[in-house]
Computed example of a mutant assay.
Amino acid sequence: MTKNSRSSKAASTKAPAKAERATATSDGKKPSGKATGTAHADAAHLSTTNNALVDHAYLSETQFGTVAETLQRNLATSISLYLKFKKYHWDIRGRFFRDLHLAYDEFIEEIFPSIDEQAERLVALGGSPAAAPADIERYSVVKVPTETVRDARAQVADLVQDLTRVGKGYRDDSKTVDDAEDPATADMYNGYAQTVDKIRWMLQAIMDDEQMN
């Protein structure tokens, strides 16, 4: 046998082991699904290095896909809502300046923790948040204004509309992930819905002030 033949034979015996390692999950099992690129909501399922190592604990691939879609969307929405409150916090003018300038930051403090919590929940289930600015804009149901809005009533009315949509989204997503056998994420969403509903109520009450008309 020639030297080249021996080298070729050795390489061929090593190849299957390498392939086996590449397709193993972190618990030693075969992955339940293959990376399929942009069809999935989270970055963990893009066709990049080491994504074959992802597992989803007690969720099936289908269940994870359902839960991940809601987490990615709600994460992006929470970030956008934070930025929108900050934008209006900076731009507010007029007799309601001090009240709303301070109130917006108080509301932000209640919303802000959900950003990290939702991202880490996605990671805990074997996902990876898509967090580039373009991804946030694509997934979020809240749009951060590019124009300057100084009027108090215009700001508050816009935020009430957003919070109505976000609160309903959390309520609907709670049922969706519960049906996907993920009650832990459902509980998270129920808590966020309560927070969003409270902030919406407070802003709606401000609009009842006759001086704002």
Rank of each mutant, 00 (worst) to 15 (best):
E147N: 05
V196K: 03
N51G: 15
G37K: 13
V67D: 01
N51Y: 15
P133N: 03
G65C: 04
G65D: 10
A132F: 12
T23G: 06
R138I: 10
T70R: 06
S140V: 12
Y82F: 15
R6F: 11
K87H: 08
I79T: 04
V166G: 08
Q155G: 04
Y58W: 10
T70A: 08
A44Q: 07
H101E: 09
V156G: 01
R138E: 14
E61W: 02
M188Q: 03
T176M: 07
L81G: 01
F64M: 07
Y189M: 12
K168L: 09
A41I: 01
Q63Y: 09
T62V: 12
R200P: 06
D178L: 10
G94D: 09
M188E: 00
T148K: 15
K34G: 03
I108H: 10
V156H: 03
D208Y: 08
S8D: 14
V144S: 06
V123S: 00
K9M: 11
K143H: 15
F64I: 08
Y139P: 08
A11W: 09
K3Q: 12
N74H: 11
L163G: 01
R150C: 14
S32G: 15
N213A: 15
I206F: 14
K198I: 11
A52F: 14
L102P: 08
P133F: 04
F96G: 04
Q63H: 06
T77V: 02
R93Q: 13
V166S: 13
P113N: 02
R200N: 13
N74K: 05
A15R: 14
M188L: 07
T77L: 04
Q118M: 00
K198D: 09
T146P: 06
G65H: 00
N74M: 11
K175M: 01
S174N: 00
S114T: 06
